[in-house]
Amino acid sequence: METPSFMSKQYNMHLDFSLALGASFTKWMQALKEKKILGNTCPKCKRVFVPAKPFCEICFEELKDWVETDGTGVVESFTVTYQKFRNCPEPPYVVGIIRIGNAGTCMTHWIGGLDYKHPDEIPEKIKIGMKVEPVWKEERVGDPLDILYFKPVA
């Protein structure tokens, strides 16, 4: 039997974690159960954060004031995924950068409600600046994936 000149060791890691979400993230997540997308505001620069954050990275101020948006947003950018990635949805799917209401920040979520029969044509169906609205799950648990996707506003 031939002796290999080098070997490889196969292995993997399955680890469990639990992240404490804190008051700001918790309030934002809980509102999703009620089909509400909240934002919080920097007391100094007045920028609205959607999703909420505990602090403004630029002014370095705590964010304590809340606003409720109407949930609609605009597409700031998008990419159409055609390849399967581990732990990610079945392709094709569209990852969008969506700015909700007058927020100064963006959410990353899926853009759906499109005809996916001709995958090559998907990029032509989405426009930067296009207005979108959330499509909610029937049963919500307080998670961004309570929103199934954002669809173009009719």
Partner: peptide, 15 residues
């Protein structure tokens, strides 16, 4: 809590 579930990877971020 916000981004991982959306199926974003380095490749999509470049896209």
């Amino acid at each position: 809590h916000f981004h991982r579930g959306s199926g974003i990877t380095n490749i999509q971020s470049y896209g």
